[in-house]
Design a protein around this nucleic acid. Structure first.
Lengths: 201, 201
DNA sequence: GTTTATACAAACATGAATGTATGTAAATAG
DNA sequence: CTATTTACATACATTCATGTTTGTATAAAC
């Protein structure tokens, strides 16, 4: 047993989180044992219990890693000359992130399909603060689009934001569930264009 | 040990399915043991194993009971004078079903939040045949709406159907996740009206 | 340079869930 | 009326996962 330096221990911790993500994705959170995670990370359960209190804590550590950078990347520029186009670009950006960030995609996949929202996980079903914040910023963006006369009337920014929010929720879910050759992946960009075209003046 | 008549056995079977639904909803499918279900149904595991091969089979039996009647109730009348209104009414009907059919609502809740789509459950992530059929009928309805000049242009029925399909998916999910006093429940009807208004000529 | 805390591996104890096998009283078939 | 199946309850065997405890080599603190 060669004791690791502090830096090496950090690496081990990362390996465990990566392994957890892979196993969660394959087995589902409920059917994932810490033994499976440890094996996938090339360590023993001892290492896992050293870095994390239990599976739940490990799960939330994994989630944090992917969700926070995600929200940072989807932004609406309030000084944008073309707010409606900005909304469209933001939605395209969401799909782009799912395509080229495997960790984010896998984490969303786990959160959407491989996790049961009961007991310690049940608080997660409600809209997160991040989601509500997103809704607010979306409403603002539609407000600016209306000021610029980009929207066909009647155009209540709040109502439009909710419609778009629900659209995005459905889109992410079906995009994740689809295989690479199915409509929800192939035509996602077209769906986004249609969605925005419906509200353009 | 009083042996039951064939009819009584059928009742027992129903009780087990009802109990399973309740426990699935509370504990999640993965954390639900057959012992819990049996206790909730007032029988022993022996009875459960007599009527069902295992938890998976019981789960699918429960699902079937709720999903089939649901699809039957959401229909588009192809002879409707007002196809676009028909689409709107169909979406309202979905929410109506969730409100006044607890079994359907609870089953959808389980399917959406209390079940991990791995192994024997993974086929369920893909769009079901029922959903694809719904999409087709939705496309047809939009086609008829276009013929009647109800849609603002450009109006590709297929594209509109997908946008509505994604909207409905998001709506159901957030409606289920919300508490009775939150926007996604309180304003669901308004969201539906907005969604349809966006495509009206 | 000694002490102490760290980063694990290995062993242990416990509990829970599963599937199966067996028992049985009464319904039902003949 | 007897034989057989049905509809369960009960008991058993086995497998896993969990959390904790102990051991230990070494990095780091002093």
């Amino acid at each position: 047993m060669v004791r690791k330096t502090k830096e090496e221990a950090g690496v081990t911790r990362c390996h465990i989180i990566e392994a957890a993500r892979r196993v969660f994705l394959e087995c589902g959170v409920g059917r994932t044992s810490l033994e499976k995670i440890a094996a996938a990370a090339g360590v023993t359960r001892g290492a896992v219990y050293w870095h994390f209190k239990n599976k739940t804590e490990l799960f939330f550590a994994m989630r944090e890693e992917a969700v926070l950078p995600f929200l940072d990347r989807v932004v609406f520029d309030s000084a944008d000359d073309d707010p409606l186009g900005g909304i469209e670009r933001a939605i395209h950006e969401i799909i782009r992130i799912l395509i080229d960030q495997p960790r984010t995609r896998e984490t969303f996949d786990i959160l959407t399909f491989k996790c049961e929202y009961v007991d310690e996980f049940s608080p997660m079903v409600a809209c997160t603060e991040g989601q509500l914040d997103f809704l607010d910023r979306l409403t603002d963006a539609y407000g600016r689009a209306r000021e610029r006369g980009q929207l066909r009337l009647p155009a209540d920014p709040q109502a439009l934001a909710y419609d778009t929010f629900l659209f995005i929720g459905g889109l992410i879910r079906h995009w994740l569930a689809a295989t690479a050759d199915q409509p929800f992946r192939v035509d996602a960009e077209a769906f986004i264009r249609t969605h925005i075209a419906l509200r353009r003046a």
